[in-house]
Amino acid sequence: MKSLKYFIILLVALPLTAQELQSEKEKTLWNDFTYDVGNIFGGVGHAYSRPFHWKGDDWANFGYLAGGTLLLFTVDDELNDWKNGFREDIPDFVIDYGHEYGSPENNYMLTGGVYLAGLFTKNEKLRRTGVLLISSATAGGFLQQVSKRIIGRARPKSGKNSDVYDPFHLNRVYNFDSFPSGHAMLAFSNAYAIAKQFRSPWVKAGIYTVGMIPGLVRVVDDFHWVSDVAFSTVLSIFIVESIDKYLDSKYNEKYNNQSKNVSWNLSFGPNTLGVSLQF
């Protein structure tokens, strides 16, 4: 009789225990999700607040970026004429990839998929990668949308020169929204963040090359000037690095213990100007 009593208690206790474990699992999943969402917004805010904390080297890097962009501004029209005729030599699948991959909807499908895979498999490193991808895309995407309306630079396809502007519009004015390049910024942000998972410089170089295709395609198809894409690509590196440093304090998983420093080297010589970006 006593054994029967223990057996009945066990039958009642097992479902209750299983229910508690399931609730605990669901609660943990929800906690991870809300924690990550907080870090996404925190990362965006951290990236935007960095200029208020810049020191000598940071301002120097910004100066290099601004100076390099201005230098390209002076030769944008010549570079645009020079690239004419390349369009027919590029395979259609590369053109399609360049236009589609850098679009916001496709970007968030990819970044969201990476994050959800990490969330449901309880892989913190993959979760952190997803958070880095989403927050970097959000920070860069919002910044470039606002900048387009303020700057109002003519696109090459408008038939105008690179120095023609129609600035300060609340609504987006098509053909006057060239600077900066959203496709280049989103695509290279993803490439740069994903490349952090790997040590091999060859793998990194391959990922960077794929990430640069959308920006180059947008130049070839007259949506952007070379300076638009160059500026957006370098700016995306700064945004990813800034947010990644912020996430170091939020997650235990690190990316191969890599140093998160961006440095520039300028070289001058007879009829030569060289700029090297190390990251």
Rank of each mutant, 00 (worst) to 15 (best):
T209P: 06
W202P: 00
Y165M: 03
P180K: 04
V164L: 08
V164Y: 14
F176S: 07
A195G: 10
G206W: 00
A193Y: 10
F188C: 04
K204I: 01
Y174H: 01
T209I: 12
Q197F: 11
Y192V: 03
G211V: 04
F179M: 09
I194L: 14
D166A: 10
H169G: 07
D177V: 10
G206Y: 00
A191L: 10
R199I: 05
F198A: 04
H169V: 05
S189F: 03
F168K: 11
D177M: 10
A195P: 07
T209F: 15
A205G: 13
Q197V: 02
H183C: 00
N190A: 02
L186D: 00
I194D: 04
G182K: 13
A205Y: 08
V164I: 15
L170F: 15
F176M: 09
Y165F: 15
Y165N: 03
F179H: 08
Y165C: 02
K204L: 00
W202A: 14
G211A: 06
A193H: 10
D177Y: 13
Y208P: 06
S178T: 13
H183R: 04
K196M: 14
H169M: 06
A187G: 11
A184K: 11
D177A: 10
A191Q: 09
S189E: 07
I194K: 04
W202N: 07
A191I: 10
F179E: 04
M212P: 00
V203R: 10
V164G: 06
D177W: 12
F168Q: 06
S200V: 11
A191T: 11
A205M: 08
T209M: 12
S178C: 13
F188V: 09
Y192C: 01
K204W: 00
D166C: 06
V173L: 14
Y192L: 02
R172G: 06
H183M: 01
D166F: 13
W202C: 01
G182F: 12
N190V: 00
W202D: 05
M185Y: 04
V210P: 02
A187K: 03
M212N: 09
V173I: 15
F188M: 14
R199Y: 09
S200R: 12
G182S: 10
K196H: 15
Q197N: 15
N171W: 13
K196E: 15
V203H: 06
Y208N: 05
V203L: 13
A195L: 07
M185R: 06
M185V: 06
H183P: 01
Y174W: 00
Y208R: 05
G211K: 07
